[in-house]
Design a protein around this nucleic acid. Structure first.
Lengths: 216, 216
DNA sequence: CCACTCAGTAAACAGCTGTTCGCTGATTTT
DNA sequence: AAAATCAGCGAACAGCTGTTTACTGAGTGG
């Protein structure tokens, strides 16, 4: 789509991506707040000073990770939104999409869940902005649904917030379920994950029922 | 209620509490994962080595903080549970209780929200256990409610989970609302907090509606 | 072809970290 | 009154941290 960037810029972006990937890996067992610059460069195999060619901070790197992580989530959300059919089918599909997303990008999901309320203010803010954007998008889609006739914009926004929050919580819960029995008991992990999905479906059904009787 | 402990043990517990308080203060702007042992002792005005007389780790200190923070929350939850009256009154009271709790223990709420998905495994586990305990308690109370006739134990547990999760999320949102416009604009902070509370009430009303029509 | 740009290097800086050691002196126990 | 306990101290340890510096050498554009 664009100017094939020179081999120099290509190499630079490759290193940048390597830094992001290494950081994401290191963040599996710690918070961004304690991620060291040297730690990241060491994992990539690059001099500490090279870090400054790409980011000014580990917080800066964190913000870049937010873009990456929520960029992929955005596609999943759009896919869930455009789903048609009865409410049960839509719920099943939404939960399946979330589960698939967690399976495809576990580190991204962990990062968002961990840093959403984390100790690094710019990262928290970036996540907040994006999630609010998602909620606006969902609210707009809900407004287009004939089932939402008579709903105020504020109520639609409130409902959308419930859906987005529930999605993030569910994604994190799926992750925990997989990590809890990891190692020798893969079957137990599968069962725990299925239990999380079943609960998530029931919770969505509860919300959908409330939605249906909102205007009484 | 107990043996008046000697002046030695009293002094020890005083130092221990000072360490906990100092840590809680330092955790306003960072995650437990990056909290240093020396940092805490320096804030208290005590030698680094003294730390080991009370905790073996900062993770260990974190677990102690979980007990403290969720101990106070537990009382608030019990107060919310025993509330009687129509559903709207119960919702208003529950939201008011949460708001009061956040005002009384902001650092505790921040700690729990931050470390619930944080980078320190033992602390995450401790929070998970306690929140699950709270949910069980809520589920039991819901089961005693005549409005829950015909509900399965699993469904009651699912509903309780929604309530507990929503409470934690709301508490954290109240905190953010207060911090967002802090400093020169106290009026704006009040308005932002009231908006959060209004949304929380509507969300609870939505869930209550779903609950009422669950058995259709 | 040649001047220039600039991603990544190696070294050095002061300052921080967790942990261990033997010690002190007030409190407790015998 | 003598003996034992033990919370807190101060010093030392190796190893880590972020940041700056002058540098190299491959890639670029006129």
């Amino acid at each position: 789509m664009s100017h094939t960037l020179g081999i120099r810029q290509a190499q630079k972006q490759k290193t940048r991506q390597a830094l992001l990937d290494a950081a994401l890996g290191l963040l599996e067992h710690q918070s961004l707040s304690s991620l060291g610059l040297r730690e990241v460069t060491r994992a990539v195999g690059v001099a500490p000073a090279a870090f400054y060619r790409h980011f000014k901070d580990t917080a800066d790197l964190g913000v870049a990770l937010v873009e990456e992580a929520l960029g992929s989530l955005h596609e999943t959300i759009r896919a869930a939104i455009v789903t048609t059919g009865g409410s049960d089918e839509r719920i099943d599909r939404a939960v399946d999409l979330i589960a698939a997303h967690v399976r495809a990008h576990p580190a991204h999901v962990r990062f968002i869940a961990r840093e959403r309320h984390g100790g690094v203010a710019p990262v928290r803010a970036a996540i907040g902005v994006q999630l609010r954007r998602f909620a606006d998008e969902v609210a707009e889609a809900l407004g287009a649904d004939p089932e939402s006739g008579g709903w105020s914009a504020a109520d639609l926004r409130m409902l959308a917030g419930v859906y987005v929050d529930h999605m993030v919580m569910t994604a994190s819960a799926i992750l925990e379920a997989g990590a809890g029995a990891d190692g020798d008991e893969e079957a137990a992990a599968r069962r725990a994950e299925e239990a999380v999905l079943a609960t998530a479906r029931r919770q969505l059904r509860l919300v959908t029922l409330g939605r249906r009787h909102w205007l009484d």
